[in-house]
Every structure is written in C-alpha cells, then in structure tokens.
Design a protein around this nucleic acid. Structure first.
Lengths: 102, 102
DNA sequence: TTAGTATTTCGTCTAATAACGAAACAAAAT
DNA sequence: ATTTTGTTTCGTTATTAGACGAAATACTAA
C-alpha cells in the first residue's frame, strides 16, 4: 500500500470552488454589479451594456456563477432578474475571511 | 463606431487574478500550509507528503502561485524554502475584504 | 568524480475555459 | 398567428489547466 495522503478539507474545497468562480474579471464585475444594486432589478442586458463581451459570453459567465451557487436568476419575462444568493455569499465571505485572517 | 463598453477596473482585474490563483484546492492547501508555518521553513517535499498529487504537479501549482505573486521561493540547497509574499498577501486580503464588505 | 537528494522542467495527454455568432426559446404584444 | 424582445443554448475554435512519469538541474556528500 502506498503512503496515505491527506485529502483536502471541505473548507479548502469550498474556498477553491468560490475562488475559481471569481477567477475572471467579468464574473467579479457581475458580483460587484449585483451587490451595488441589491435594491434594483439586475438584468443580463443591463450588465451586457457595460461589458466588453458578447451577450452569449456573459450568459456563460452567469451560468458559472449560478453553478457555483453565488447567484440566482428569477424569471420575470421577458427578463431574468439576477441577484446574489445570500447564503452562499455569506459562506464565501466567511471562508475567505478565515482564509486571510487566522 | 460601436457603443463603447466599459473595461474592467484594476481592482476587478486584480481580484480575479488572485481568485484564479486560489481556484484549486491544492493551492488553497499550500497557502494554508505556508500561513500556518511562517516561522518554520516550508519545503516542497513537506507539502508533497500531505498532498494527493505527484510532486511534479505540486511544483506546477507552486509555480502558479509564484506567478500570481502570492508566494516566493528562497533557494536553500538542496531545498527550496517557500513563503508567503506578504505584500501581495495583504493586497489580496484587502481586495477580497473590499469585495465582500461594502 | 561519482552518487545521492530535492525539486523543477519537459513531453504528453485529456479536459475545461473563454470567446463568438447563429439559432432556439419563451413570453408578450400586435 | 406572427412579430418582437431579452436571454440562453448550440456549434465551433483556440487557449489554458491539470495531471503524470521521465528526464534534467543543482547542489552536497562520499
């Protein structure tokens, strides 16, 4: 049997997962945008106008943030209103806080 | 002329850069390890023993963290002693703090 | 000089990411 | 029923990431 190697902790896995989701400026922009506008409705189109990427590319970035759990989309036809997923946001905040301050 | 699109801010670019560097559990592990052991010497081999990846793969992760500026290696033959780059570490901490608390 | 040790680089492979425009979708309005 | 509108999915392409073992490097000790 080989020497047993430690696996990563859940915190390390989760931290990496959130970090990866934030690993592109467009996705940081999106989160910034949503945080700044928690009161307003945030549509894909609103963000598209401020981003130097195609709408389909933006859509992909939104999907990735959704898959990481950081945002959620609420259908409000013909729009989709995006907002922060507060649970995950707080979790990410806590993880990074722990990561940097210890 | 097409409608001018905003570019990303420097903060967004930097935040994304650091986030990307932390976007893998092995790299989160490494940073954890280095922070826990700032007093001791941290060699690649010490970490390799606790990680479920090949040494060459670890070396690549170390390289990525180095390129992102988060760590630095000091040659101490036949070892290489790794440590946190405090300047960048503080910068990253500040960026994430700003990102999450605003 | 040769052997040993710690680490990195190289070569290779597979899979994931990032980007775009075109096409598809879903609901509302005409 | 057709058109319009906002958004996503699809198909494609190019680049980057993650992994490994083998080979190279760099220094020490014998």
């Amino acid at each position: 049997m080989p020497v047993s190697k430690k696996n990563y902790t859940i915190s390390q896995e989760k931290t990496a997962r959130y970090a990866k989701a934030l690993g592109h400026p467009a996705r940081v922009f999106i989160m910034d945008f949503l945080v700044k506008n928690t009161d307003k409705c945030c549509y894909s189109g609103d963000m598209a106008e401020e981003l130097p990427i195609a709408r389909s590319t933006l859509s992909q970035h939104l999907k990735e943030l959704k898959e990481a759990g950081l945002i959620q989309g609420e259908i409000n036809p013909p729009y989709i209103k995006y907002c922060i997923n507060k649970i995950s946001w707080e979790e990410a905040k806590g993880l990074f806080d722990l990561f940097f301050n210890r």
